[in-house]
Simulated assay, not measured.
Amino acid sequence: PRVTPLLRSIGDPTPCLVAYVDRTGADFEVRDDAGRRETGQVSGADWPIHKTASADWSERHFQTAVENTWEQNAAEIANAAHEMWQRCGAEVMLLVGDARERKAVRDRLPGPLRAVTAESEHGARSTGSGSARLERDIAQVRAAHETEHVREVLDRYHAATHDDGGGNAISGVPALVEAAREHQIDTLLVTPDGQDTGREVWIGPEGDQLAVRSTELQYLGAARPAPARADDA
């Protein structure tokens, strides 16, 4: 079967964890090419949560308690977001909600998660708060992460092709066939319509049974080698 066109069409489906936050908690869902799926929620303290306008001493004390509730809830949301992110397999996260609440949660995220977290001012935790602008923000976050991932992989490849790369990068069908047989491929880069992608190689029923010539497969235990395009193989 042709495999390369399938890989080319699906791209890199980056899952995004969307956290709808407010002062009392958050709702989480994962967004990817398959759509959306709810993954859970977290609820913090719900009192005291609203400030008053009085300048009385007791009221100022109450407002301090409100501030403390907000801070505690933000910490709980951040912890829950980190656990959810690790469990659901998302690669990026988008915080949705009021600007102050988003910032409070983001400041409390662990460094690795904070580095892949973005914010959206479109939408809120309340039911039915989604919008076309929020959908656009989710799509942009996913696309930006995919672009950055491709750039990092290409940079790593180009660095490894130089003398200081330790010889960890190879190119060309014969070298790749040998690496595949030795189970030494970490990341495979295929250039669409490259000059070697349609080159004929030979394969057996096992994943590491590849050869440039059919006679080589006899030594690998393949009784009936079959021809295949190099990119698919």
Rank of each mutant, 00 (worst) to 15 (best):
Q41C: 05
V42I: 14
S43G: 08
S43K: 14
G44M: 06
G44Y: 04
D46L: 08
P48E: 05
I49T: 12
H50A: 14
H50M: 08
A53H: 11
D56E: 14
W57P: 09
W57R: 11
W57Q: 07
E59A: 14
E59S: 13
E59Q: 15
R60K: 14
R60P: 01
H61C: 06
H61I: 06
F62Y: 15
Q63K: 13
Q63N: 15
T64K: 09
A65D: 10
V66D: 06
V66T: 09
E67M: 08
N68I: 01
T69W: 05
W70F: 12
W70S: 07
Q72L: 09
Q72P: 00
A74V: 01
A74P: 07
A74D: 05
E76I: 01
E76Y: 04
E76F: 03
I77T: 14
I77C: 09
A78I: 08
N79Y: 00
A81D: 03
A81S: 14
H82R: 10
H82E: 13
E83R: 13
W85H: 12
W85K: 00
W85Q: 00
C88P: 05
C88V: 13
C88E: 15
G89T: 11
A90C: 12
V92Q: 07
M93E: 06
M93T: 12
L94A: 07
G97Q: 07
R100M: 06
A104P: 01
D107F: 00
D107V: 07
R108P: 03
